[in-house]
Design a protein around this nucleic acid. Sequence first.
DNA 1: ATAATAGTGTCTCTCAGACACTATACC
DNA 2: GGTATAGTGTCTGAGAGACACTATTAT
Lengths: 252, 252
Amino acid sequence: MAKLIKRSAEEEAFLAEYEVEAFERSSVTVDVVVITAIDGHLRAVLYRRPNAPEKGAWSLPGGFLREDETLHRTAERVLERRAGLSEGFFFEQLYTFGAPDRDPRTRVVTVAYYALVEPGRLQERLAEGEQADVQLATLTVPWLGEQAGPIEAADAKGKKLRLAFDHAGILGMAVRRLRGKLMYTSIAYRLLPETFTLRELQQVHEAILGEALNKRSFRRRLLASGEIEPTGKLEEGTDFRPAQLYRAVLGW
Amino acid sequence: MAKLIKRSAEEEAFLAEYEVEAFERSSVTVDVVVITAIDGHLRAVLYRRPNAPEKGAWSLPGGFLREDETLHRTAERVLERRAGLSEGFFFEQLYTFGAPDRDPRTRVVTVAYYALVEPGRLQERLAEGEQADVQLATLTVPWLGEQAGPIEAADAKGKKLRLAFDHAGILGMAVRRLRGKLMYTSIAYRLLPETFTLRELQQVHEAILGEALNKRSFRRRLLASGEIEPTGKLEEGTDFRPAQLYRAVLGW
DNA sequence: ATAATAGTGTCTCTCAGACACTATACC
DNA sequence: GGTATAGTGTCTGAGAGACACTATTAT
């Protein structure tokens, strides 16, 4: 503590309160919403909880904040350990959840992050070994625009998943943030491989916004934006006319 | 704690890890950026720190998260105790700061909130008693749009203030958020009294965005938005032609 | 009358949406 | 050829900015 100085009664009161309150400490965790887009739908990595509380429910990958570690670094650790991701993706802080009863064991304040990953990286990763306890769940957003609210997750067969704690709300916040940022930042490219067609880019935009977009406007706007450049190559393996491949021109 | 239940070996292992990590706990505080707009400039409530660390520097009002209290409620408590505000204003969570060295005393994770208040409420409050240790500092934002970054604060005489900890960055996040929300939400009215002129409304928009707006477009857009309605009254006490007074029509 | 701001008429430019069309691949 | 998608030409309407104008208040 600082050395003693002359204090007013008010300052003494303030310091006394500080000492008392300093005893009340919380566990701080970081949960990460790892998002990708496949066939026009957003998806997120979910883990099945093996233990109580919320045993059997699906939850976001998370971990405890350690001493001398930034929140950012905790998120990186979670991404590496629980999703096998170590670099080449975008992530940022989302929102902090601190309801006193959100975890029945003890007071837990959770700082949520979200990460955007191209689907190939995750599918590779999640294909290793048995997947009974991890999956790329498909998200369904029951609201438009940035209204926010909890959202639903389903497995590959379309079966609705029970989400643990307040994680439906955290997923909702992630989608809300994506929708808000889509217009004025370049997040969409983070959900695509290095080269992509305009159709794929439009599908990602539509998956985020949850609504169909006008093809003519979309192409005009994106081509005029300077954010993408043609590679001169065509996509391969289609059943129909192959499209031009583009590349994002950004400071990744 | 929950009552004991039968556990598998795997569950035991999980709980053991949980117990270990549960020892690493942090102090959680809530700092609030209380913002208003006066004469085309954003302002924020700042307190002078009476003690080390950062003695003499200016800081955001804040307080510790208590047991059984939501983050939201902590913010309310800070607003009431440190700014005299108990209702009738907007506030929401901003961002969470958790660098290990941001407070030299102990590990402190701070969840920042911001509140929007009409200037009358604050000036009333801050006028009570001596103001040597609290003030409505004027903010200067050295960047455009939502680039983000720290911002500067100055006192009534224009003298630059030294800001404590990472509070310049927190203020920057608040302005960034305001700029982002201005276009698609009704936050501007939260910085104005119940009735206001279109000039005052435009000045608030300009203060938030940090740039001049086109008068014709601004009026057209706001009048067509359905967000405001005329009161039929005129402003009083001007040196020139008095303007119509409007009222926001929102779910406050 | 003068100064200062409130408030409007109207032209132009940009851009989004609608619609219809042509182009190119696989089968 | 048929089918499916890629990709374009062009009209229309909405809205932003520019500019110039009229209106109303205090002094």
